[in-house]
Amino acid sequence: MVNYFANLVTVTGISMILAISLNLLIGYAGIFSMAHAAFYGVGAYVAALLALHYTAELTLAVPLAMVTCAAASLLISLPALRVRGEYFVAASLGLQVIAFTVFEQWHSVTGGLSGLIGIPVAELFGYSLASPLAFMGVTIALVALVALAVICLLRTAFGRDLRAIRDDETAAAAAGKNVAVIKSIAVAISSALCAVAGVLYAFNIAFVNPESFTLNLSVLVMAMVIIGGAGTITGPIIGAALIQCLPAALSWLPLPPQNIGYLQQILYGLAMVLLMIYRPAGLMGKARSKG
């Protein structure tokens, strides 16, 4: 029983990291990325390959995955960020589809659709994290670290620049800010934080395949951020907890099981629509009047 809940907390924690890192883009930088699952996947594959071939040490896997994701995102975002708004949404959608194709087709590295199996148990400073409770502890610590990193980042001059760009890109550029560089750095940081979630996922499930990193997941993470409240610290955390626990909560209820999945999805969908109509800032956001 304890282990079941430990696992549930771990999975929720991973979603929280995803949502917090995406919120940095959607909520603070005004960049609407639909490719978050792609970076999550890169993080997971890096951790899986490292663990299968060299070591399952988290203190190595996490930094390596973060650096790889940040580098990959820079490669892509530097050109893509030249365009605004809807074009970036479209570009990131395209990127997500292409990333999935690469995960699926690059057999020699990703194992194709059959994926990578038998990922060993994670280690922290040489101690095995085989117990679900220990792994949950590490996950919670990492969620806290990621949240803290975002909070600190927002207090710096860089954080102020980001919000300036979000609120008025033209004014920020006129004030001498290098918009493209600031945005690219934001994307790189967000991807690096997202990679942390990928590493945890790979070790938690011990099995990585492309089907875990689809557009649907990007959308789900986006829903977490939006429902919780973009541009707030607590919003994505609450959003992730809500969306992750909804299936578990529903499965305890005596509903006709063949329709549970659909009902869940319909609930997400309705929540998104109703929130956008009545409370576009999300559950945790201030109900400010927009102008």
């Binding site: 029983m1 304890v2 282990n3 079941y4 696992n7 549930l8 999975v11 994926g115 679900p132 996922y201 938690n204 499930i205 099995f207 395949n209 089907e211 875990s212 299936p247 578990a248 499965s251 099981p257 549970i260 999945g261």
Partner: peptide, 20 residues
């Protein structure tokens, strides 16, 4: 339990079957 034919969902559900 519902696996949705997906690895992550299945692992959570499997834990529930095994532990709960």
């Amino acid at each position: 339990e519902d696996s949705q034919a997906q690895a992550q969902t299945a692992v959570v559900a499997m834990n529930k079957l095994v532990r709960v």
